[in-house]
Design a protein around this nucleic acid. Structure first.
Lengths: 201, 201
DNA sequence: AGGCAAAGTTAGCATTCCTAATTAAATAAT
DNA sequence: ATTATTTAATTAGGAATGCTAACTTTGCCT
């Protein structure tokens, strides 16, 4: 009987264990909500995730390699899912990339309509948080942002588009500043997924 | 272009959207960490989840139906995974159940050793939270507990073993009290997964 | 030019995970 | 008491996930 976060016996010794157990339940909730959408629309969870990602990110990020990193699967897995989505007429391959080995994935009109159907799959969670006080949300978001940043630094999440890793981010003189927006960033205005994100040089 | 939590363009209008996006990343982290363990031990993610659950819960909960609800999959999926784990010698079926259609799943010694190897798969997350102030953890846990409780009430998470749904829980006279432990419960001593949990009558 | 690295694909496989139908036992209803 | 309904688990069949390993093509570097 070991001291794991999944052993209820020890969860009360250490609040951090209960937090892990709680996050695991949230994780399970995402999985379930995504599957419910999947069944309704007759597409698979990973397929929905790809469609939504493609809808809201620049073409340069919509290639097999990047998508594989984003969703923590191998390239063959993405390659396969793309093939199926293409066969279903939900996306097409755009070979206008500068690198001739690669291509961009683009949504078709049908793919767009699937995104509109599925992009609110997390609605029950959304509704919960919308009701909360903004102070509580700020606390929570600050914690999450700091966690994700650390997961990024330690190489567990390999893609990241958040301020802390961006070339426009400036933390000198004890502030968080964006050199592109020319704005001070507060813990709660830090972006997790900034459209203008660029890697540090 | 819709107002979804996964559209970075709108994430800054509404902090709750960024929270969803953040939780989605954490969810992806669980998935990745679980897969890493899985590859090392040559067992699948769902198999690991089953083993860990069985290790720390009463036999009455270790049947196909309950496990299916716990992990949000169908009974055939669990039935299959149990068959594979049994074939690998990690668990055995105990038919001493009062219901002759059903059986309990028990770990073998080998299964136990697999649990010891895998139960800390969330360690990188655990390390992050261990470093945090207890006030921050309490805030976070309180939010998570309230969210999980609501997911439970709305039928999205169908199993629950937390105080709010337990027959020993007493919220009369403006307090949270456990009639079994005969103790007052604070937001952070509420249990997500109480071994003594019993359904309300 | 030669050699290595990277993008994507293919092939082969175990597993996931579903739905629908089946068997057998428990429970409810008449 | 006997029938009808529900429930637990399984089986069958199939689509998809997702892996590793091997391969092709292109890009890059020296």
């Amino acid at each position: 009987m070991s001291n794991s976060p999944f052993n209820p016996k020890y969860q009360n010794d250490d609040l951090s264990k209960k937090v892990i157990a709680g996050l695991e339940r949230i994780s399970e909730t995402f999985k379930k909500l995504l599957w419910e959408q999947a069944k309704q629309l007759k597409v698979s969870p990973i397929q929905i995730q790809l469609l939504i990602f493609i809808a809201y990110h620049k073409p340069e990020l919509c290639n097999v390699s990047y998508l594989a990193k984003e969703f923590n699967v191998t390239k063959p897995t993405v390659s396969d899912a793309v093939r199926v989505l293409n066969a279903k007429g939900l996306l097409q391959k755009n070979f206008s990339s500068s690198d001739n080995r690669s291509y961009f994935v683009e949504l078709t009109a049908l793919g767009q309509s699937y995104v509109e159907e599925t992009e609110h799959f997390a609605k029950p969670l959304q509704e919960f948080f919308t009701k909360k006080e903004s102070a509580e949300l700020e606390e929570l978001f600050t914690t999450l942002a700091s966690l994700i940043s650390q997961l990024n630094n330690s190489g567990i999440l390999t893609v990241q588009r958040m301020c802390y890793a961006c070339r426009f981010y400036d933390s000198s003189s004890n502030r968080d500043y964006c050199n592109l927006l020319r704005k001070e960033l507060s813990p709660s205005t830090i972006r997790l997924d900034c459209p203008e994100f660029e890697e540090k040089l």
